[in-house]
Design a protein around this nucleic acid. Sequence first.
DNA 1: CCTATATTCTATTGTTTTAGTAGGACATTT
DNA 2: AAATGTCCTACTAAAACAATAGAATATAGG
Lengths: 152, 152
Amino acid sequence: MRLSKRGEYGLRAMIDLASWTQDGRVISIKAIAERENIPVKFLEQILLAMKNGGLVNSRMGASGGYYLAKPAAQITLGQIIRLLDGPLAPIRCVSQMAYEPCSCPDESTCGLRSVMFDVRNAIADILDHQTLADVVHGQPGNNLKLNEMSKS
Amino acid sequence: MRLSKRGEYGLRAMIDLASWTQDGRVISIKAIAERENIPVKFLEQILLAMKNGGLVNSRMGASGGYYLAKPAAQITLGQIIRLLDGPLAPIRCVSQMAYEPCSCPDESTCGLRSVMFDVRNAIADILDHQTLADVVHGQPGNNLKLNEMSKS
DNA sequence: CCTATATTCTATTGTTTTAGTAGGACATTT
DNA sequence: AAATGTCCTACTAAAACAATAGAATATAGG
């Protein structure tokens, strides 16, 4: 159930962009990498992928850099993670974007599938509604349960 | 965010055990593997791990096999997944059982961390409350959201 | 125009994880 | 004693992960 470093770095970089960008300014890979403790060349790839995915834009050359392609309130964490790490769903047979049949004889009566469907939705409910703007402004998650004692 | 085959097979095997076991009977690896389409030798390892983890017991020798170590209502999917795949948390710094500090300067104000904390709790809320008995008897998940349009 | 500073793009590398396989030792039933 | 199980360790091929390397290209500023 874990997020890769690629996904984590991508999220941190986007949050960084969202919090440091104002008006027409751009931010260099190096600046982000230093603030967020991310290997420069690795971050380079990640930002490139996000550019190709339409989440950021860039200005080349000296004093160039990156900026969000859309307002921070229109970019969700779900979009970023899907782009960098693939589907949110724990198993393919409950994924909307990358569905594949599983091995069970009948999906409609598969107990495991229905639980995993719930898990997928719980994850997507959070990640598809939390925007970069929410994260930057410390918006509390709408699914937060305080009195939760389970160990993850 | 995905479940490994090891985890998936383990869950399927446990659900199989929960639904086919009655009174003092045991079920062989081969029988489970055939019903659930799991490679026999792989399942062997998985069941062994679950035995060492205290979730199942076994009877050796001819006509031996496995059975649940506890009533199905006392085994949660969370226990199984943690045993086979490790922590449910997307990143270590929000894990209870395998906490590690992340790279950010201050965890208490880290926006990413607080979102991932919510995600961890959402996953654990489901997986730590759904028992094998629930799954076998088609208990609906308590976190199911029907009108959900997001793609996973 | 030239240089320093950026992004762009592709390839390569080392490590770890995943998903099994193989094979023999040991226990129990028949 | 043979058949049928679990137990246990080691091994392996392939994929995923986490970078690194290096050259090409673009632009600002002097």
